[in-house]
Nucleic acid binder design. Structure first.
Lengths: 346, 346
DNA sequence: CTGTTAGCGCCTTCAC
DNA sequence: GTGAAGGCGCTAACAG
């Protein structure tokens, strides 16, 4: 195994350890050109590689950050992670990837783990169950940036997509397509900040166009209740002409339901979803969605964190909200929005 | 920031550093019950967390491994990574995730990086362009396990899916469905081991059923040539009745092509693909595929690596090949294989 | 410009 | 059972 150390190259080069150290750290102004070249040659010859662990211990910096996602199998997390990885790679950091699986215990043990490993900072999609710990760490000066989920009970660097605007835009798109009866499908369980905002976007889009909210059009579904809920939504006498699914899990649930029940999109029912799906454009018909800027959120979070680590942003915490993007495909029929716009302006 | 160190708890507990160290390392037999309890209490009080970097420097072990995938955005890599992460989490290791993007230079710099960080080992889908380096490291005793791609020019712990068997099975499935004119679509470029094996599987399945190979049915496509190649495949006078796409990239290419040209599956053309797609079951029709055991490959690779690190397997290198799984959906029409089998047995 | 000297925080014989 | 001492590989003053 790799045994050659700084001392070895120093001896072989006939200089002291500190000179070699200077060389490693590119402080060339402190040595003669000849010694510099000699050191360079010896390092090459010996294939010397500095021990980062020893270095980290000394300089108290590991150039390693942790990112704790809900689950890397989820496309949102995947793209996000890739964003942070790319940024980190360019800026000399490495990332330790952790899957918390919405398990507060796992989340906590990862946070502690990363701290024991002396990670320079953490990017995390908090479950919300360890906020006291997280807050304490932030206050102590440990760099943490949150993403995806926002909790108003404490201040922190945060990067979010504009869930409100995104939901508002898709729903308005539906309205422009002539729909006034719009169903809303929400996963059961904890009403996280982003979910609330998406729901608010739906409400406000209806409101703007003077469409009353019908409670019967709003369904909370879980794996178990999906069938029942969707049946009641799609088979009532007063049924919606369009559906907005609030995240990819329920989108898939609904897609499956419609397929099994041979309900045709968009002829029988228009559809629009929050979150792009990997193959949304290959579906029949291609699904109109509002996509979150997953990758950009990753680079943004990494930027924030690295700046915080290198204390370029010593000021207040920043909350970065990145807009979502409407991707119009064919699940609402042909795009009439242009004409609609014109008509309403007339 | 975290400043309490072993020394602090030792002082506060009125014992020596080494005693606390013993405690940390659970060597309780070397201390009285009372001191043990006192130390425990003090650690709790102070919120002491051992510094893993210092510890690593001393014990020469970081409990960190690197995994270098082609691209985490690719579902294969995602599931694989999750497999290794899960195994590592359970066994006290952390993983640094790296995307090589098929770039030999990036790959090499990641390998060096991980070594400087004193990673205990590396799991890698080698590009094949740094095999000399990799081989040298393995020979030196540095734990490395390869996956996905296999190179016969050197020995190493390796985990692979059974590409040959998988290809053979899907193609045979097609034959059982009555097809004898089977197109093969291959991505242009480097003929990696797994691609060769899949092609061989195709050949051998045809051979077993006495179907001659027709060169005109075999197309190498790239992003640029896809349209042309697929046109010539699907519009010739002697055209296949089924297509086998050899990886997910070309699968998507073909799916897009068929969609645009309104060629119906399976009525106009049956189809079968290597690699499952995240939403294959939501496609119209649901796509029959042979899926690789992505996740299992990840846990297998992690197992191999951790064993190697902890030198439980000091013997020869092991090459683990995990079977692929045929997932029959509807892109070949209804499943007649049962009847076929019966018929041929008659 | 170069070498000497202390540690960074922890582990580990080896005496007591 | 417990403590003292030395060292892991590297950095950073501070002399020279």
């Amino acid at each position: 195994m790799s045994k050659i150390k700084l001392k070895d190259v120093a001896e072989k080069a006939g200089v002291s350890k500190s000179t070699v150290s200077q060389f490693i750290n590119k402080r060339y102004e402190f040595m003669g050109k000849d010694t510099r070249e000699k050191i360079e040659k010896i390092i090459e010859e010996l294939g010397y590689q500095p021990n980062e662990v020893a270095r980290s211990l000394k300089i108290k910096k590991t150039h390693t950050i942790g990112v704790i996602v809900a689950n890397i199998l989820h496309p949102f997390s995947t793209y996000f992670s890739r964003g942070v990885e790319d940024y980190c790679q360019q800026h000399g950091y490495n990332v330790i990837l952790c899957n918390a699986d919405n398990d507060p215990f796992k989340e906590q043990s990862y946070i502690k783990m990363l701290q024991m490993k002396q990670a320079d900072g953490i990017i995390i999609a908090s479950t919300g169950k360890n906020n006291d710990l997280i807050m304490k760490e932030i206050e102590r000066g440990f760099p943490i940036v949150l993403f995806d989920r926002h909790f108003k009970d404490f201040e922190a660097d945060t990067v979010l997509s504009d869930n409100y605007q995104g939901a508002f835009e898709v729903v308005e798109h539906l309205i422009h397509q002539g729909h006034r009866k719009i169903g809303l499908v929400i996963p059961e369980g904890q009403l996280l900040s982003m979910r609330k905002l998406r729901i608010q976007g739906y409400y406000d889009a209806l409101k703007k166009h003077d469409i009353p909210v019908e409670d019967a059009f709003i369904k909370f579904v879980s794996k178990h209740t999906a069938l029942l809920q969707l049946d009641s939504l799609c088979n009532g006498k007063n049924k919606p002409t369009a559906i907005f699914t609030i995240n990819d899990l329920v989108t898939i649930e609904v897609l499956n339901y419609l397929k099994q029940n041979k309900i045709k999109i968009p002829e029988d029912l228009a559809m629009v979803a929050f979150d792009d799906l990997p193959m949304a454009s290959l579906l029949e018909p291609p699904l109109t969605v509002v996509a979150q800027p997953n990758y950009e959120m990753g680079t943004a979070a990494a930027t924030l964190l690295v700046n915080r680590i290198e204390s370029k942003n010593i000021g207040n915490y920043v909350k970065k909200v990145i807009p979502c993007k409407l991707i119009i495909r064919e699940s609402c029929g042909l795009d009439h929005s242009k004409e609609q716009e014109t008509a309403s302006n007339a």
